[in-house]
C-alpha cells in the first residue's frame, strides 16, 4: 500500500485517485506512441534531399518541428509518470470499464467506418440511409415514435441531401457500383 492509498480518506477520494492514475496511464500510452512515431519520422526526414543553393533542405523544417515534438512529448511523459507513480494501482477491470463507458462513441465510430466502406459500393444514398437509422437507434431512438422520427430524418438527410447536391449545386455524390 503506497502513501496515496493510505491518504485516501473516503471512497470518493479513492475514485478520484483511480481516475488520476487511469488518465496518467492513458496519457503516457498516447505520448509514448506519438514520441516513437515522431522519432521515426525525424530519422526518415534526415534522408530527404538538401538543396545546393538554399540554406534549408527539404527535411529541415519538418526536422525542427519533429525535434520540438519529441521534446514536448518527453516532458509530458515525465510529468504523467510522476502522477502515475503517486497514485494507487488500478483495479483489474479498469480497462473493461473504460471501454464500456465509451461504448456509444466506439459504436458510432464503428458505424461511420462501415458507412465509408459502403459508399463506393452502395453509393451515398443507400449507405447513409442505414447509417443514419442505425446510429439514431444506437443513441436511443428505441420507441415507435423515436424510430419513425429516425427514419424520416434519415430519408431527408440521405435522399434529400443527394438530390440537393445533384440538382442545386451540381455536385455528384457517389452513386455506387450499380448506378
Amino acid at each position: 500500500m503506497n502513501d496515496a492509498t493510505r491518504q485516501a480518506r473516503s471512497p470518493s477520494d479513492r475514485a478520484r485517485q483511480e481516475e488520476t492514475r487511469a488518465k496518467a496511464m492513458g496519457h503516457i500510452v498516447l505520448n509514448v506512441t506519438l514520441a516513437v512515431l515522431f522519432i521515426f519520422l525525424f530519422l526518415r526526414a534526415g534522408s530527404l534531399p538538401s538543396s545546393m543553393w538554399e540554406p534549408l533542405g527539404s527535411g529541415s523544417f519538418p526536422r525542427m518541428v519533429l525535434a520540438a515534438l519529441v521534446v514536448f512529448n518527453g516532458l509530458i511523459i515525465a510529468t504523467e509518470v510522476r502522477h502515475f507513480i503517486a497514485m494507487p494501482a488500478l483495479p483489474a477491470k479498469a480497462l473493461t470499464g473504460w471501454c464500456y463507458q465509451h461504448r456509444l462513441a466506439f459504436g458510432v465510430l464503428g458505424l461511420f467506418t462501415l458507412f465509408i466502406l459502403a459508399v463506393p459500393i452502395l453509393g451515398f444514398r443507400w449507405s447513409s440511409l442505414p447509417f443514419l437509422i442505425a446510429c439514431q437507434f444506437l443513441l436511443g431512438a428505441r420507441h415507435f415514435r423515436g424510430i419513425l422520427i429516425a427514419i424520416a430524418v434519415a430519408l431527408v438527410m440521405s435522399f434529400g441531401i443527394e438530390a440537393l447536391f445533384r440538382d442545386v449545386f451540381t455536385i455528384s455524390l457517389p452513386r455506387g457500383l450499380w448506378n
Partner: peptide, 22 residues
C-alpha cells in the same frame, strides 16, 4: 441522438465534395 449522426454525415459530404474524392 439526431444531431450526432446527421452532423457526422454532413461532415463526410463536405470532405467528399471538396475534390470529389473518397
Amino acid at each position: 441522438q439526431v444531431l450526432v449522426p446527421v452532423v457526422l454525415m454532413l461532415c463526410a459530404v463536405g470532405a467528399f465534395a471538396l475534390n470529389n474524392n473518397l
